[in-house]
């Protein structure tokens, strides 16, 4: 598969006088269709990195290439066409008076004709299951519904890449699961590349690969299972400790020998059942 995103030696300082760069010599690539999770504690630089990829930061060192186009002040609009971003607080990104106006906003910006716009807005709202809310005011929706509308706005402009910047962190557990399932489905149907910045272990588990950012540096790159095997250290990486790791630690504290590595809950259940039956 081709690399849809290629970042090389990217560095950024918010102010020239800052001693510590917000991004420090970061290099990585993302394959088309991949789901990549960016994790790190608050202030580690992961959101800064995502903004750099979307051309929202005037970085001076390094290169960002998106879909074969090198990001420069001249190409920034072309690059942004390829990327849709969803942020933590949906209230900060609504512009329309109604749900359908809001979804249409991105299309209006691209000078799509009304004849084409109307069916695209409708199809996008259908896609996220919000068609019955088309005439409603976005502010009156629940958190989960608001993020669905934000996703519809992205679906309407059909980008290649979707960046979720802690997009599920304000949702309740059910809303979070629904949102992840929806992103997963859209990714398959639309062949989207997904980058999710997250503290949520389930969201990180949905990814093919996890990048860990700490103090502006890329410190680790691995499969979710390898990352999750780090137990208590995950807290410092800005993630929660998976339940199976907590249980293993609790068993170990009580003198039971436990398997190494990361187990899913099903694997853990299987191992426990076999150990208990082994009399």
């Amino acid at each position: 598969m081709e690399n849809i995103i290629d970042v090389q030696h990217l560095s950024y300082r918010y102010q020239d006088t800052d001693g510590r760069p917000a991004l420090d010599d970061i290099s990585f690539t993302v394959k088309a269709g991949e789901w990549l999770a960016l994790v790190g504690h608050n202030g580690s630089g992961k959101s800064t990195l995502a903004r750099a990829v979307d051309g929202l930061l005037p970085f001076s060192e390094g290169t960002v290439t998106v879909g074969g186009i090198k990001l420069t002040p001249e190409t920034v609009w072309e690059v942004r066409e390829k990327i849709g971003m969803i942020f933590q607080n949906p209230d900060n990104q609504f512009v329309g008076a109604t749900v359908e106006d809001d979804v249409a906003f991105g299309l209006e910006n691209r000078q799509i004709s009304r004849a084409e716009m109307v069916p695209r807005v409708k199809a996008a709202l259908d896609e996220v299951g919000m068609q019955t809310f088309a005439q409603r005011e976005p502010g009156a929706l629940s958190g989960g519904q608001k993020q669905r509308v934000a996703l519809a706005g992205i679906v309407a402009i059909a980008p290649d890449i979707l960046i979720l910047d802690e997009a599920t962190s304000m949702l309740d557990p059910q809303g979070r699961r629904d949102m992840l399932a929806l992103v997963q489905r859209l990714r398959e149907e639309k062949h989207l590349t997904v980058i999710s910045i997250t503290h949520d272990i389930d969201e990180a588990a949905s990814a093919d690969r996890v990048l860990v950012i700490d103090d502006g540096k890329l410190v680790e790159e691995a499969q979710p299972a390898e990352i999750f095997a780090q137990g208590e250290r995950l807290i410092h990486l800005g993630l929660d400790v998976p339940f199976t790791a907590k249980l293993k630690q609790a068993l170990q504290d009580r003198g039971i020998t436990v398997p190494t590595g990361y187990q899913t809950t099903t694997e853990m259940e299987e191992w426990l059942w076999q150990s208990l039956s082994n009399t």
């Binding site: 907590k246 249980l247 068993l251 009580r254 426990l272 150990s275």
Partner: peptide, 26 residues
């Protein structure tokens, strides 16, 4: 699967406490 709990464990520690009771040789 047939593991019986004296009381439903609500935390990893409570779960481990009861598993130890059932653990072969422990």
């Amino acid at each position: 699967r047939g593991v019986k709990w004296d009381q439903l464990p609500l935390t990893a520690d409570q779960l481990a406490d009861q598993l130890v009771q059932h653990w072969p040789g422990m």
